[in-house]
């Protein structure tokens, strides 16, 4: 089942990239997708049946806009720090507890944290995520975990759980 799902996804990506419907193109794409699916099918994420729930797509669109807003904010934040002559940075690595389950949800959360203001994911060990923060504003664990993860966690839980 997972092998077939991976084959379909790869075939769609191939068609989008090559953008033509010739017979030769289709055959080459099918052969390549079959070989890759046979090799990497075991790595396909579990629980991919959730792609058939339409309300998840609704939350995904809302999440996309919030993510873009945070991303633009991040860039102005970095621009301020770069252009300021005194380099107002106070870096440090902090440890934040994760509240989401599942591989895909965690991957998306880590990637989103990398693109948001002043934070970059270094490692995930068990239930904790280690984050390099460019301006550590407080040493209170609850406060900064709310500041870093709280923006995304509820949307990601709605999308992936």
């Amino acid at each position: 089942m997972r092998y077939i799902a991976l084959f379909i996804v790869l075939m769609l990506i191939w068609l989008l990239f090559t953008f033509s419907l010739d017979a030769g193109n289709l055959i080459v794409g099918a052969v390549c997708a079959a070989i890759s699916a046979a090799i990497f099918g075991g790595y396909y994420p579990r629980g991919s049946r959730m792609f058939f729930h339409p309300h998840r797509y609704f939350w995904a669109v809302i999440y996309l806009f919030i993510f873009l807003w945070e991303c633009i904010k991040a860039n102005f934040d970095v621009a301020y720090r770069v252009l300021h002559p005194g380099l107002p940075i106070k870096p440090g690595i902090v440890k934040v507890k994760l509240n989401v389950k599942g591989e895909m949800a965690r991957t998306m959360l880590a990637n989103s944290i990398t693109m948001t203001p002043g934070t970059i994911t270094i490692d995930i060990i068990d239930d904790y995520i280690y984050i390099h923060w460019i301006y550590v504003s407080s040493h209170d664990a609850e406060l900064y975990s709310k500041k870093i993860c709280g923006r995304f966690e509820k949307y990601i839980r709605r999308i992936f759980e």
Binding site: C71, A74, N75, V78, A79, R81, V82, L83, L87, I89, P91, T114, M115, G118, I120, H132, I134
Partner: peptide, 22 residues
């Protein structure tokens, strides 16, 4: 801006931050 950050910031992690995002 990202390339300026790559030149200005003092250590690897900060450079990575500014460069990747921008």
């Amino acid at each position: 801006l990202g390339c300026l950050g790559l030149l200005r910031f003092p250590d690897v992690y900060n450079r990575l931050q500014s460069a990747t995002k921008c």
